[in-house]
């Protein structure tokens, strides 16, 4: 009798837990409610509706570099964006410069604006990473159900750059041209290195002389 009561209580607990643990639905209804994520479409909308408007807030490159040298923490606090923890932070920058060399994978130029005129480079072949996505500071990781979708957005943004931004620029640019650019850069806050910075371009224009 005692054993029966014990088993009965045990079964009741199992039934209670099971009832509160799972629920059943028709698979078609669930599928209908969840459309699969389209990274290319998201990236296009992001480019038009979020990234382009945020370019007006880009830091002027010469001023940013001066601030990084004099007050690194303020520069990072005021201008950097990052989605994760760590020392790697991203900046949206703009400026003008004079092309010093055109290489197969990059265009080298000397910055014209600001007090300093360091040499920088624009990536024109290998456009990878999350610099543009993260520098904008307008994407919330919580909008994405998994990190694969989130990373695919970066891949699609880079594809837009490779297809739309770089080709018209790369076909015309030559040594001595004055260029106007906006782009994203990646800097390590702890181990800051300000020479030979690589820019992932967002817009590129060759100034008519």
């Amino acid at each position: 009798m005692k054993k029966m009561v014990r088993y009965g209580v045990f079964l009741l607990i199992v039934a209670f837990l099971a009832y509160n643990s799972v629920y059943f639905k028709k698979l078609d209804e669930v599928k209908a409610g969840t459309a699969s994520f389209n990274a290319a479409k998201y990236a296009k909308e992001f480019w038009a509706k979020k990234l382009t408007p945020s370019l007006s807030k880009s830091a002027e490159t010469g001023q940013l570099l001066s601030l990084l040298r004099t007050d690194k923490d303020k520069a990072f606090k005021d201008h950097a964006n990052a989605l994760g923890i760590g020392n790697i932070k991203y900046f949206l920058i703009k400026g003008t410069g004079k092309v010093t060399d055109v290489e197969e994978n990059q265009v080298l130029f000397r910055l014209e604006s600001g007090a300093e005129k360091p040499e920088m480079r624009i990536a024109t072949e290998y456009v990878f990473g999350n610099a543009v996505r993260d520098a904008s500071g307008t994407i919330d990781i919580n909008e994405f159900s998994n990190s694969m979708d989130f990373n695919n957005v970066s891949a699609e943004i880079n594809e837009i750059i490779r297809e739309n931004v770089i080709p018209p620029f790369k076909s015309k640019v030559k040594k001595g041209d004055v260029i106007e650019f906006t782009g994203a850069i990646e800097l390590n806050q702890e181990h800051l290195k300000l020479d030979n910075i690589e820019i992932i371009p967002i817009s590129l224009k060759i100034r008519d002389l």
Binding site: L17, N20, S21, Y23, F24, K25, L27
Partner: peptide, 12 residues
């Protein structure tokens, strides 16, 4: 095959 979706609560 059964057109069934089994969802799990946090407890489950």
């Amino acid at each position: 095959d059964s057109n069934l979706y089994i969802g799990f609560t946090i407890l489950g």
